[in-house]
Design a protein around this nucleic acid. Structure first.
Lengths: 195, 195
DNA sequence: AACGTTCTTGACCGATTGGTCAAGTGCTCG
DNA sequence: CGAGCACTTGACCAATCGGTCAAGAACGTT
């Protein structure tokens, strides 16, 4: 296990994480062995265990860091937009775009959600995302833009609808993202506004 | 591999599938070995390979049969309801109820979607479910009950929102199903109707 | 140049895996 | 009763897994 990292070390660590994420997304977490990872990178197995204490810790770390990156993108996209409904829309668009550029994490998140070992990490990520959305929804309710319903449930529904649309059209069918994004936005906004 | 099954054989097969599904859902597919399955059932390993040609085939079979059962439940719930929007609502309610009674399959479907090997089976299941929903949505558009949008995208959005709400409130938090179902129905119907 | 730290190597290990098979048991039907 | 098929056993196998470690290379600092 590592102690302090030089720049060289940080680069290796990044390289391992990026590469492992790709392999995990392609072949799955369990079927991808630590040997697979280090061999395709042409380094010894010791390298892996210098930077990560276990294969499990590696995936947990990948999940944490990638989610941080997604969240950064969302906040950047929303900026200081005053209209809460518009903030939600900007968040949806940013999320779909991010996944389009980071396809591998979509499969990874999905797998992690189905494995007891990683569910806690994913759960924390998810809770943060929901909390973000809930703030905007509450603002919208206060402003009278949205009917008074449970904001948390609305947030979950939005996330679910967007993820499913992204999976089907962007990942499975490789369709252009525009129509999908518009459909997601329209469905979710009508869903929360509630006639 | 089996040839013909007596009643005794059919029962064993069912028993293996049900039990394996539970173990897979609890500990995950890969971490659950064939030995785990047969040992906890107190039978020899040969029994497993008498009924299934591989561990992979077993899960594929579980996915197929459970999805058939879910679909049967949906069709039964919808009956011959003439109003297409109401048909969708009945379908949503039936789905959430079914998953409540068959929790183990939720985790299983989720894992399968993240594994290349099982994606094809799951994909066919999903396509059938979407096609069912699309028919009702098209009817609703023809009747002027729903704005003219891509019915397939609406169907995907509905499935996504419902699944997410079910996962969070019914599985993770073990909350009573009523409020969740109402939220799902409300969000989805407003989402498709489109003010 | 020399020393300590960071980083890399790859043979090695015990455990476990999915899957096979020769040998047997029990059920059914003529 | 006995022949034949449906089913069961569990030792066994080759392959692979995550992880260790003693040895040494590369680097930064002085």
């Amino acid at each position: 296990m590592r102690r302090k990292l030089t720049q060289r070390g940080k680069d290796r660590r990044r390289q391992l994480m990026e590469h492992a994420a790709e392999l995990f997304a392609e072949r799955g977490y369990h079927p991808t062995s630590v040997s697979d990872i280090v061999e395709s990178l042409r380094v010894g197995k010791g390298v892996f265990y210098w930077y990560f204490s276990s294969k499990e810790e590696l995936l947990a770390e990948i999940l944490r860091e990638s989610h941080q990156d997604l969240r950064r993108r969302q906040q950047q996209a929303i900026g200081d937009e005053p209209n809460p409904v518009l903030r939600i829309e900007l968040g949806i668009r940013a999320t779909i775009e991010w996944f389009l550029e980071h396809r591998k994490y979509f499969t990874l998140f999905q797998f992690a959600a189905s494995d007891e070992r990683f569910a806690p990490v994913l759960r924390r990520n998810h809770d943060v995302a929901i909390a973000d959305a809930v703030r905007h929804i509450k603002d919208a309710i206060v402003d009278g833009l949205v009917a008074d319903q449970d904001p948390e449930m609305l947030a979950e529904a939005i996330v679910g609808a967007c993820n499913q649309l992204t999976r089907t059209y962007v990942f499975d069918r490789h369709e252009p993202v525009d129509r999908t994004t518009e459909a997601a936005v329209s469905f979710c906004l009508h869903g929360i506004v509630g006639k």
